[in-house]
Design a protein around this nucleic acid. Structure first.
Length: 469
DNA sequence: AGAGGTAAACAGA
DNA sequence: TCTGTTTACCTCT
């Protein structure tokens, strides 16, 4: 098993001014079979040992070099070719829980590299890539076989194929990416990964924008109603695909259908009413869920715009983050479960504010609501369920910001994160490492730096000495 | 265990 | 009352 500690990736030195994820390992000789399983960082299938991918001579500036693309990113187009339902990918996330890899579509790129013959007109972010353990430090054996253990792997890029999208206009980028992933989910998958001497067909080898992360099923379609995810194809196949689609994806679809990828809450409600079964419900639970997802999912950003016609009025607008336009939306659950948060939640004596805030929910919980009330009514000691947390703290620290350890820092707070929110769990660890605070629970990031929600001893501390909640 | 849904407390506009 | 945030629970896989 390879040591896939992400530190090795994150601190890999940059070579030849190429972006971190576009380094190459030079070696000579003929292509060799890889002796290592290719690793997938996004859960998508990757090439197996008997799969070879050739890079055409025209695409290689130095034909004595074997290139590998080292960033663990999804490669939707090639994945379409490689996908083998019988192949179980090695999933990066499964080995590094909450340790998102530092892919960022906004990594600064040397402009000159954009025209590199290696890139052949593609921007680096457009180049499909996968992970190869070409960094010696990634390998347990010290890297002895780091270079020569894999074949001249790359991707069969057809330089004559002109369906590569080079537009940098955000909306079209996003649509290309999504549309392409849409194809991924719809197309029948070729089970023949061998591409040598094959002429790629447009069906399985176009080079539109690759989506760097798990493929969204929330891509727009002609009718604005959205596509069908692979999950839905197996799970629903029914009349209303949206019925089985999570709120986050539906909201994403709604926003994608808007001209500026933005809507006010009421417009989102309206979209749900028109396009989903959820919105047809008489209850208002779905609205609550929408608001919950908007708040909790980093793909959705709240902005303010002035009401047309009345410049004094402002309305809150929800807009898709750039990465969400390009890559789709991630699970809302994912954003609310950071490492620190997990630790925090496991503490036996959570902060008073946590004990009192929030309430039990869920369908079954509501069923037992009556039972609880009855129990309370016969209890001789009536305990107030709230009023001890935020109330007390706000009265004592009126200017304090009440951010939650569960709230991921916005990507703007993280240097180098660009527009990629997947930095934040890693960033939490970085702060822990930097501060030697491995034992501190609930470390999270604030505008002012790390905030230490609660230590194992139950003490509160923070970077500025004030308590955080 | 993770994803996703839901109810509900609570604050602010 | 609406909106936004947050928590805590639930079911399902």
């Amino acid at each position: 098993m390879l040591n896939m500690n992400s530190e090795h990736y994150r601190r890999r030195p940059q070579i030849n001014s190429l972006p971190l994820d576009f380094q190459y390992a030079e070696s000579s000789g003929t292509p060799m079979q890889s002796t290592h399983q290719m690793l997938s960082f996004d859960g998508l299938p990757r090439a197996q040992n008997d799969q070879q991918f050739m890079i055409t001579p025209l695409t290689v500036p130095n034909t004595t070099s074997n290139y590998s693309l080292t960033t663990p990113m999804a490669m939707p187009q090639a994945t379409t070719v490689w996908s083998d339902p019988n192949h179980t990918p090695m999933d990066f996330d499964s080995q590094n829980t909450n340790d998102y890899y530092d892919y960022s579509p906004s990594i600064a790129v040397d402009e000159d590299e954009q025209d590199s013959p290696f890139l052949r007109g593609m921007s680096y972010s457009e180049v499909p890539r996968t992970c190869f353990p070409c960094d010696p430090r990634m390998l347990n054996d010290g890297g002895n076989m780091a270079v020569d253990s894999f074949d001249a792997s790359a991707y069969l890029m057809d330089p004559n194929k002109n369906d590569m999208q080079t537009s940098t206009e955000p909306a079209s980028l996003g649509f290309d990416a999504l549309e392409n992933s849409h194809n991924f989910s719809r197309l029948s998958i070729s089970h023949s990964p061998k591409l040598e001497h094959e002429t790629p067909s447009s069906d399985h080898f176009t080079f539109n924008k690759p989506t760097p992360f798990p493929l969204p099923s929330s891509e727009p379609s002609e009718d604005g109603g959205g596509g069908i995810s692979s999950r839905e194809m197996t799970a629903v196949d029914g009349d209303d695909p949206s019925a089985d689609e999570p709120y986050a994806k539906l909201i994403h679809r709604a926003l994608m259908s808007a001209p500026d990828h933005s809507m006010v809450l009421q417009e989102i409600y309206e979209w749900f009413r028109k396009h989903t079964a959820k919105g047809a419900s008489d209850t208002k639970g779905w609205m609550n869920s929408i608001r919950h997802n908007l708040s909790m999912n980093a793909a959705f950003k709240k902005t303010e715009r002035k009401t047309p016609g009345d410049e004094t009025k402002k309305s809150t607008e929800w807009v898709l983050e750039e990465f969400a336009i390009k890559d789709g939306v991630q699970s809302t659950t994912r954003y609310r479960k950071g490492t620190g948060a997990k630790k925090f939640m496991k503490t036996e004596n959570p902060a008073p504010s946590r004990q009192s805030s929030g309430r039990k929910g869920g369908i079954s919980a509501s069923k037992t609501k009556m039972q609880r009330q009855q129990q309370r009514s016969i209890s001789s000691t009536h305990r107030s369920r709230h009023g001890h947390g935020h109330e007390f703290l706000r009265s004592h620290f009126p200017t304090q910001r009440y951010s939650s350890p569960l709230t991921p820092p916005t990507h703007e707070n993280i240097p180098g994160a660009g527009c990629n929110p997947y930095f934040f769990p890693k960033q939490q660890l970085d702060y822990e490492d930097m501060c030697g605070l491995q034992d501190v629970q609930g470390v999270y990031i604030d505008d002012n730096g790390p905030i230490f929600a609660e230590s194992q001893e139950g003490h509160y501390a923070s970077a500025d000495g004030l308590p955080r909640y």
